[in-house]
Simulated assay, not measured.
Amino acid sequence: MVDRGTDVRDGRRRLASDVMNESGTLQEAYERLHRTGPEFEGWLSNHGPMAVEAMVRHGHDRDVHRWLDGYVARLDELPRGSSPVGAEEWRAALGDAGRLGDWLAFFDRELRERPWRDVLETWWPRLLPGIAAGATHGVIRTGHAVHALLQQPGQEQRDEVRLAELGQALGYWAARWQPIAAFDAPSGTADPERAIAGVPRVPDQSKGINHRLDQLAEVPGWASSVAALRPAADAEQARARLAELADAATLRYLTHAHGNPVMLVHAATAPTAVLRTLPALPPHLWNAALNAAWAASAAVTAAYAPADARRALSDVPDGPDQPEEVFELAVRHGDEHVIKLADTALDVHRRTGNPAALAAVTRAATLISPFS
């Protein structure tokens, strides 16, 4: 006779063991990465913490250290602070990249002295207007860090390594804080798909993102296009609209990624990061979060969208059609943007059932050079 009770108990022990192993892998990965800075080679963003959090959460913890062995070698050392950010001067220090080390030290101290949810609630509305920070990587890294904390039921206040990751994310965001020009709260009637389609392109796409974002205020139709989104009536509607925005940006990647396959990933991953942060925030902050996420997605779209769309479903090479296989494809490919897009695309596919979300990942893997 089969002892089904024993089977269940063994299964629970295996599940508990898997969770412990994954948690340990993420902790080890964060410890390795926290010896490095949020930027490298000028001001390229360190994607390591975001990628490993996604890999562990999707069950690829065994691949994390192998991936890190190659990635960490590219990174710079952790910057040191020289002039502490004071309680009364934080506004003047926002967006001062020269004080990156000071901001990292500030949030490290904040998160040692106060509950992390209180710190997030205080600083979220201060940082949100500068959501373009680090080409939106400030908010994206914050979203991954918060998501990692929320995956630790009953241990949220005790995991110092995850708290340290949140501190580095917030510090990076504060140091690179960058507002988006000529952006007013949405007041139109368009759903996210139609609103994104109406965003105009910046005229000069010859340089990096700062040059492109600097043009937004003068782009004809920019202000009216971002105002066209239908506003949310309440917090729950804001959360639903954020999900719709992430869905629309991910599906649009399939037909527009050729404009810039790396940078256009962030049009989808930025609103996803904001969406994942909402459970840690009080609902009265959710509407502003939607508006800022829309600003970020629209700005990236304006900066990098191609002049023409392509009917990509017909020319995407055959790829896996199951979510787990798609994420495995991304891990094998190795590029951090492909991994992050896969992480977002699996959420989109779960919400919509649309196979184009998974095809977007195959699209990214064909357009972005593999990491080796």
Rank of each mutant, 00 (worst) to 15 (best):
E160G: 03
D308F: 00
A302L: 11
P306F: 09
P261H: 08
D18F: 00
A73G: 08
Y253T: 15
D3M: 12
A54V: 06
T250S: 07
R194E: 11
H349C: 02
Q27S: 11
P279K: 09
N354H: 06
N287T: 14
R332A: 11
V331Y: 06
E41V: 12
Q237A: 15
R13F: 01
G24T: 03
H60T: 12
V274F: 06
S206D: 01
V85Y: 01
D7G: 05
A280M: 10
L264T: 10
R109W: 03
L329I: 04
A185W: 03
I209M: 12
H65L: 15
T344D: 09
D321I: 12
N354W: 09
L341Q: 02
G138W: 07
L346Y: 00
F183S: 13
T36P: 09
P186V: 14
A296T: 06
I209H: 10
W67P: 03
A268P: 05
L75V: 07
L281I: 15
P261K: 02
A298G: 05
D318N: 11
R126I: 14
D63M: 10
V146L: 00
L15Q: 14
K207L: 04
A174K: 01
I180G: 11
A360S: 13
G259N: 01
A273Q: 02
A307T: 01
E113K: 06
A145F: 02
A330P: 08
V161R: 09
L242N: 09
A29P: 08
W90E: 13
P323G: 10
H137W: 03
A105Q: 03
G48A: 12
R114V: 09
A97Q: 14
A238V: 15
L44T: 13
E39D: 04
P231I: 14
N287K: 12
L33K: 03
D204I: 04
A164H: 03
